[in-house]
Computed example of a mutant assay.
Amino acid sequence: MSTVKVGNKQLGVGQPCYVIAEIGINHNGDIDLAKRLISVAVAAGCDAVKFQKRTVEIVYTEKELATPRPNPFGETNGDLKRGLEFGQEDYEEIDNFCKQVKIDWFVSPWDEPSVDFIQQFDTPVYKVASASLTDDNLLKYIRKTGKPVIASTGMSTYAEIDHAVEVLGKENLILMHTTSTYPAKYEQLNLHAIPNMIQRYGVPVGYSGHETGIPTSVAASALGACCVERHITMDRAMWGSDQAASLEPNGISRLVRDIRLCEQSYGDGIKRVYEEEIPVMKKLRRVGAAV
Rank of each mutant, 00 (worst) to 15 (best):
A184Q: 13
E276A: 14
R69D: 15
D111G: 06
E171V: 10
E263G: 12
V273I: 14
D30W: 02
K127T: 03
K102M: 05
P70Y: 12
L173H: 04
D268F: 12
K50T: 08
P68K: 02
W239Q: 13
I232D: 00
G74F: 02
I25S: 01
I118H: 00
S2K: 11
H163I: 04
F97K: 04
F73C: 12
C262M: 13
S132L: 03
V56F: 01
H192E: 13
L37H: 01
C46M: 07
V6N: 02
Y274E: 09
Q243E: 14
V125D: 08
C46Y: 02
I20P: 00
A129N: 10
I118S: 04
V13F: 13
E187R: 09
V125Q: 08
L223A: 15
N250P: 00
K170Y: 05
D79H: 13
T181W: 05
G12W: 04
I161F: 10
G87D: 05
G146M: 13
Y207Q: 06
P148I: 10
R254Q: 15
G146R: 11
P109K: 03
T179V: 11
Q243N: 14
A289P: 00
H177S: 07
Q120E: 11
L261N: 13
V107Y: 00
Q119Y: 02
M238F: 08
P70S: 12
P279M: 13
A237L: 12
G240D: 07
Q10D: 15
H163C: 04
E89G: 00
Y266A: 13
Q100C: 04
S108V: 01
V280M: 12
K140A: 13
L11V: 15
V167Y: 07
N8S: 14
I118V: 10
A289I: 01
A290V: 06
A43V: 00
A21G: 04
K185M: 15
L138W: 05
K170C: 07
H27Y: 08
H27W: 07
G24T: 00
L37P: 00
A129P: 10
K81T: 02
I252T: 09
V128R: 09
S265R: 05
D258I: 01
L223N: 11
I94P: 04
P183R: 09
T55H: 05
M238Q: 08
L139H: 06
Y18H: 15
G14W: 06
H210C: 10
D79P: 06
R200H: 05
P109C: 12
G269C: 10
K144E: 15
L189N: 03
L133Y: 07
I38E: 01
T145C: 03
A34Y: 02
S246N: 04
K127F: 03
